[in-house]
Nucleic acid binder design. Structure first.
Lengths: 196, 196
DNA sequence: GCAAATGCTTAAAGGCTTTAAGTGATGGAG
DNA sequence: CTCCATCACTTAAAGCCTTTAAGCATTTGC
């Protein structure tokens, strides 16, 4: 019997494809083995267990996403940078829903540190350079941006916006307009009240 | 042997508790049966299968969340309403992470229609009444608000903000300030450019 | 060309889901 | 009050998944 030529890397890549096709939660050792025409037990020489497989896909996804985001950001500033980054983020999630879902799992501190998670934070801060926010506000803005991107993409891929006719692309664009607007005019720490 | 007195309702409630304790993805028929001191097969007289159990928890969660949000909204308007609604949303997710996660699963159109999903959309629109947005922008704003709330809460419960020292509560408050600000000053359809 | 290492299979145990058939408790009718 | 029908739960069993251990075969290096 010819060997299948399994390695941790090939398994990870195939697992990522499987996740994109079937959904991350349908990524199983058995399904992956099937794809290689091999018995499930064969995978355990290359990967400790199912959880390690998931973590590997997560790390791959974070790296790919960081790569894309970095490319999108290159040479841009201000709103251009904001939109390019956001579009890269959303585009990746739509092209690779399984990988994107993988990227959301909890990584232990060590794995997260070694992964591209840091690069994401740095890039988001790079966007904010165009908006000139002082430090504590900058952290808040990073969190708000990340929340909005992730929330929108996550709701969209789960069909959360499907029941309203308006084009999702338009709402996305308007949301980015709104984020740009609020970053250019970040509210002061003591809000002055809510007068019209 | 005394009977356990199972009903679909009691199972659903216990399933919700189980999900909050162990995480939604650890909600299994077996674990639930164990909690009632009963064999797994016993549950199948009351609930069609594991998926129905999950859907029931989702519908329960959406209803509870709508209840809370409605109470928070009562008698408030403008930023007060925004903050109360958002806090109710986040509070529920933190108190009931398993239920909250359940609320994110895809419901078929019929179930979704019968569920509280509509009430959520209506309440978000009610918040916007205080901000006087014309219609297509209103839909965009609803989507942005929902995205930001969901994204923030989802990242927070998954530990996404844990690696930065700043208090998450403060970032949440500042994010709501920012949303209030952008709603009061919603950008026009043709953005005028990005001058400082 | 042979031995050692490596890669995959077989075997097996344990858990989860789900269906079908069986048993015992409960409650309503006489 | 008692008997019987119904309903609630158990037992049994099949199928799929994960994971470990042991075995066989293929490749590699000397």
């Amino acid at each position: 019997m010819a060997r299948a030529g399994l390695t941790a890397e090939r398994l990870t890549l195939a697992a990522a494809e499987l996740a994109d096709e079937l959904g991350f939660h349908n990524l199983t050792v058995s399904a992956l083995a099937r794809r290689f025409g091999v018995k499930p037990a064969a995978l355990y020489s290359h990967v400790r267990d199912a959880q390690e497989l998931r973590v590997r896909v997560a790390v791959l996804a974070l790296a790919e996403l960081a790569e894309r985001a970095a490319a999108a950001l290159a040479g841009r500033a201000g709103k251009d940078a904001l939109v390019a980054f956001a579009d890269a983020y959303r585009g990746y999630a739509k092209e690779h829903p399984g990988r994107y879902a993988a990227g959301q799992i909890q990584l232990d501190d060590e794995t997260a540190y070694a992964s591209a998670a840091r690069r994401h934070a740095e890039m988001t801060r790079a966007i904010l350079r165009g908006y000139d926010l002082p430090e504590p506000a900058q952290t808040d803005a990073v969190r708000m941006l990340h929340s909005t991107f992730h929330g929108f993409v996550s709701l969209e891929t789960q069909g959360g916006f499907a029941r309203t006719p308006r084009e999702v692309d338009v709402s996305w664009a308007r949301t980015l307009d709104a984020l740009d607007s609020v970053l250019r005019n970040w509210p002061p720490d003591e809000p002055g009240g809510q007068a019209a």
